[in-house]
Every structure is written in structure tokens, then in C-alpha cells.
Write a protein that binds this DNA or RNA. Structure first.
Lengths: 214, 214
DNA sequence: GTTAGAAATGACCGGGTGGTCATTTCCACT
DNA sequence: AGTGGAAATGACCACCCGGTCATTTCTAAC
């Protein structure tokens, strides 16, 4: 996370929050390149000069606002693993999906920025942020898979690399389906109510448990 | 596909191709919003006015160039299905992955535009193009799954909707991994040589065939 | 009421944007 | 060589961008 000026640090808490919220919204709607500092200032009904006084530049604002936002992601995932402790591989999987859903439901704009960042090369910090996300995912799933094999829940000759990749892929894309209609496929989870999505998540996990082949 | 002016239609074939190629490259590198008509004109070493004479607007250019590009996608997929005819569900799957790889290897910039379009709302024709892609995917996979069940290759109680979704997800994302390092996971296919990628593709299909559970 | 320092302001800057159009260049046909 | 219409041109337009900074406004201590 980049640092903001002392001026910003001295601001009252609610104003700071208002500014960061509006910034996240602007970046979520328009991406980094498309975001407009003029529009942001107008939205906030404060002078553009103030924003530059706080963060120095558009890039500085993004770094600060997004850096603060990703901090929010760490809690829920740990909680999910706690919740499902000792209930087996596939239950941990299901709980992780639910945790992801919950985070997205609570912070949809952060997720949208992440999605835009995936294929938009001109976001600042892109390499670092995406690298961290992927590394965190691998660090999360790999022990899970190894433990699953050890306990006999998963096939002994499973390729862990491939298994981690498939899990990461399916879960990440399932969460993408919640936010982007074209990725929904025939699943019907885009914009669906919570119960429907939870049911589909459980079905997906069940699907993985049973495998494909006859 | 939008239409270009008669002026453009009258141009010699090689110049038309040069213009469209450069346009695809510009959009692939910078997205729709970020693409610059000035830069494009400079690249082509022709006057900006000419481009506007041909296509009327930036949006018109994109519609025409991209519309022509997606036409190229239809052939290889049909060929893949032909090639694997009668060799079973999973062989068709493998051949389809190879066809996707081949297309991306031959037209990487078209694929990049598609990827950018996934999460960038301001592309013209976005809804229509992405909807068509998803529909084509479903239309391709669904009979494959149903046939697989009928022939006893796939579990009889498989949920076809979910199966189609998983196949679409995994294959699409595998192809994304070829083009975007952060999506590679631990797989090692980003930027890898053809043999490596083919091996990984075969492993992925094998993984699907055998399933996860013990 | 005065004052000092922090915070807010918005006119202004250079530069890039998509788009226009009067003018020039080109070329095939007589 | 002359000519008519198609094609190419690039100066120009209004607008918006990220960023600057001299000036004004606010606030709190005395």
C-alpha cells in the first residue's frame, strides 16, 4: 500500500472513508485508464486539487485505495477454513466458495477491479497484486489437496499441481460468474438470489466429489 | 459485422488487410477505450482522415475489424470434432483444446481482445459477441455430454448443465492461461513451447476422465 | 480580535482525444 | 494533354485529461 499525505491522515474518519469509497467506485466502473479525477472530484463535491494534495497522483490514489481494500479479503477465507475444520476436503471447498461469495456480496466493487485487472495490463501494481492472489490461492489449496490424499479422500495418484489448478480455476471462475453475465453459462447464478447461488455452489462441489467418468 | 464505406471496399486487397491487421493490433494492445486513432494512423503511415472515411468512427472500425476476425474461429472447431469423430468423449475434448490452442497461436491478438472484452464493459458489441461465444460453447458441449452419457462413457446421473459449465470453464480458462501469466497457476503453460502445452492439455483431459475422488 | 498554519479551492496548463472537411493528389479514360 | 471523379490529406475543432499552484477559507490558540 502506498502512503497518502499527512493532510489526508489528519482528515476526519468519515470523510476519509467517503473519499476512498468513491475512488473504489470510480475505478470499479471505469478501470484505471478510464477513471476520471475530474468526475471523481465532482462526485465527491470537493475540489480536484484536494485529491491531488492527498495522494499526489491518480496512481497514488489507486495504490492507496486498493491496497487498503485487499486487506479486507484475508479474514473471511481463514474463517471459512476454521468453520469447516475436520469436516473433510470437500466441505472445506464448499465453505471456501461460500466465503468468496460472501466477500463479493459485501465488496462487489473490489471484485470488479480485480476482474478488470486480470486482462488489463495498464493497472498499476498489477503484477504484484495478481501474483499475490495466485500465490495465496496455491498456498491455500495445496495443503488441502495433500491432506485430502493422505486421508484417502482423494485418489492417491492425483497430480497435486493439476488438482490445485483445477480447483483454483473452477472456484475463481464460479465467482466470476456471479459478477459477469457472459461467464454464467447455463448455470443461472449471475444476479441470482443467495439461496440459488448456494445451491449451485454445493452442486459444483458435489460434482467434483463424484467425478465425471462412469 | 458493421459495414465499411465503399471507398474501403474499393481498396486493393493488401492495403485493406494491412489496415485491419493494424487495427486489431491496436485494440489488442490497448483495449477499446485506450486505442488511439492518431497512433493507428501513424503506425499505418496514412492520414487519420482516411480511416474515418473508411469506417466513420472508432466504433465502426472496431465493429468491422473484430466482426471479420471472429469469422476465423468457426472453421478450426468443426475440424476438431471431425478429426476425433467416433473416438469417444474425452478424445473430442482433447482435440477441442488443441483446436483452441492452435487458433490462439495463429491469432493471439484476437484472443487478447476477447479476454479484455470479458471484464471491460465499454467495448461496443460486447453483449452480443460474448453472448454468441457462450451460446456457441453450450451448443458445442451439450450434445457431446448427452452422447457421452448415452454411450456409457459418463455417469448416467450426471447433471448436463453442470457438466457443460465445468467443461466450458476449464477449457476457456486453460486457454486464458496461455495468454495471461497471472492465470497460469502452477501449471507452467504461459509462454511455454507447444509440446509442453499439448502435454498439459492431455493431462487435464486425463484428469477429467479419472475424476477426483478415491 | 488577531494571527499562524493547515486545508480547500478552481482557474489554468500542456497535451492528447475522436472527429471534420476544404483542399490537394492521383489515376483512368478520352 | 486534358478532365472528372475517387481517394488521400492534415490543419483544425471542441473537449477532456492529469496535474499545478497562487490564493482564499477555515480553525483553533491566544
Amino acid at each position: 500500500m502506498r502512503q497518502a499525505s499527512e493532510t489526508f491522515a489528519n482528515l476526519p474518519e468519515d470523510k476519509r472513508q467517503r473519499v476512498l469509497d468513491a475512488a473504489i467506485e470510480e475505478f470499479a466502473e471505469h478501470g484505471f485508464q478510464g477513471a476520471s479525477m475530474n468526475r471523481l472530484a465532482a462526485r465527491l463535491a470537493i475540489a480536484k486539487g484536494s485529491i491531488f494534495q492527498y495522494f499526489g497522483s491518480k496512481e497514488g490514489l489507486f495504490g492507496f485505495a486498493f491496497g487498503r481494500a485487499v486487506e479486507l479479503f484475508k479474514g473471511p477465507l481463514k474463517a471459512a477454513r476454521e468453520r469447516a475444520r475436520g469436516q473433510g476436503f470437500f466441505e472445506v471447498l464448499r465453505q471456501s466458495l461460500l466465503a468468496g461469495m460472501e466477500f463479493i456480496a459485501k465488496h462487489p466493487r473490489i471484485h470488479r477491479i480485480y476482474l478488470k485487472m486480470l486482462h488489463n495490463e495498464d493497472f498499476p501494481l498489477r503484477e504484484r497484486v495478481l501474483g499475490q492472489v495466485r500465490a495465496a490461492s496455491a498456498k491455500y489449496f495445496r495443503p488441502l489437496v495433500l491432506e485430502g490424499i493422505r486421508r484417502g479422500e482423494l485418489r492417491a495418484d492425483l497430480d497435486p499441481d493439476l488438482a490445485v489448478y483445477v480447483l483454483d480455476t473452477l472456484l475463481d471462475r464460479f465467482l466470476q460468474s456471479l459478477a459477469a453475465a457472459p461467464l454464467d453459462g447455463g448455470l443461472g447464478v449471475f444476479g441470482a438470489d443467495r439461496a440459488t447461488v448456494e445451491r449451485r455452489a454445493a452442486e459444483l462441489v458435489e460434482f467434483l466429489r463424484r467425478g465425471l467418468s462412469a
